[in-house]
Design a protein around this nucleic acid. Sequence first.
DNA 1: AGGCTTGCACGTACGCCGTACGTGCGTCAA
DNA 2: TTGACGCACGTACGGCGTACGTGCAAGCCT
Lengths: 215, 215
Amino acid sequence: MPTEPLSRGRIVAAAIELIEREGADAVSMRRIAAELGVGVMSLYNHVPNKDALLNGVAEAVLSEIEFTDDPDAHWTDRVRMQARAFRQIAHDHPRSTMLVVSRQLHSTAGLLPVERALATLRSAGFDGADAVRMLRMFIAYIVGSLLREVGVTPTFAPVHNRLVKAESVDPALFPEVSSLAPLLDQCDHEAEFEFGLELLIQAISVHTGRREGTR
Amino acid sequence: MPTEPLSRGRIVAAAIELIEREGADAVSMRRIAAELGVGVMSLYNHVPNKDALLNGVAEAVLSEIEFTDDPDAHWTDRVRMQARAFRQIAHDHPRSTMLVVSRQLHSTAGLLPVERALATLRSAGFDGADAVRMLRMFIAYIVGSLLREVGVTPTFAPVHNRLVKAESVDPALFPEVSSLAPLLDQCDHEAEFEFGLELLIQAISVHTGRREGTR
DNA sequence: AGGCTTGCACGTACGCCGTACGTGCGTCAA
DNA sequence: TTGACGCACGTACGGCGTACGTGCAAGCCT
């Protein structure tokens, strides 16, 4: 059986598959090689080092997201769509999300979402400085939301049990946390995401509205 | 010279000092032991394992932040103050920030900021569900902002070569990124943080205003 | 055809890592 | 005095990233 030749693409794919199956901590060069049925050092013929490999993973995940941008739609809808497209990462590759978010890429895959967002904001009437500001604000919110969703951040609600168990919190010290424990323990990630997204979009709509109307 | 006896506190302090001096990647049990002039295994008399030690680091950093809360101030000011207090982490312990943010603690240090924030939001007139929603939104924004501020990569480069170098971006592929490169390359973190913070506060002020006035 | 370069898979080895386990010493209670 | 205990420490094991060398097959030049 002439196994398909090793390649950067196959290595990256194996890494992604491994991360999603066993978590980011399980990733090692030896593990990936074993997964592919090759020797460890063979990987280095296609990837300079582990760091570059992880960049490749981030890039691959990022380039999978589908931006269906309708240039004729209202700019607020375009922003909504782009934000949701980005959030898809948390669904499609939850355990790789941290990697994607914590590596800034200056490659095409990394720049494309930025380019689209800036274009949309400029089309909404923001000047360059404002567009950059808005973009940074959205990125901060989205990144923070994704990290909560995939469980990196103080999330108050992994799907099950126990971040804040009502009985484990002293009501005298933390009355609010204690009484709101049922609410803190559950989280509809999509609803939470949409809530903040709407809030931000409405807030910045007012800014353009002051100057030139909603469109 | 009777060196001060080893203790969990001294170990955690050494870890923090090491992280800030050489970055989170430099942290290893051997390195910390060397820093303290003790054998590696001595650490395990005071800390069960590395993970718990890192939790201790996060906890220590978190408990250093100063919440100067004035219960008589307008709730919007109290929210502002709490958000800024949290951002201080990025100033005081930039290279530990990722650690603090990526470990959820159910200890006092971790719950205190949550308790305060919830109390403030409730005092603003939000019901429990809304308070939790607002809190999650603020946390997402703040976490995202801090991660941008500290550079999200292990190596904390000063202020240079941040996102994009103008000459390395193809203007045909990325017209907006290219033309806005000067703006993307620099970032006044405090101003950016305040901008989004104001936007969020104003946005949620409207929500309470609809029901019961600004106060 | 014969020789040479090149590309790639692979094994070995080094210096790190976290930590399980055992040992020895100082102190303090009985 | 003796026993237990707390704590510093050494050794050792399995796993990590990767530098380096080796060998083999395919393609290129005369």
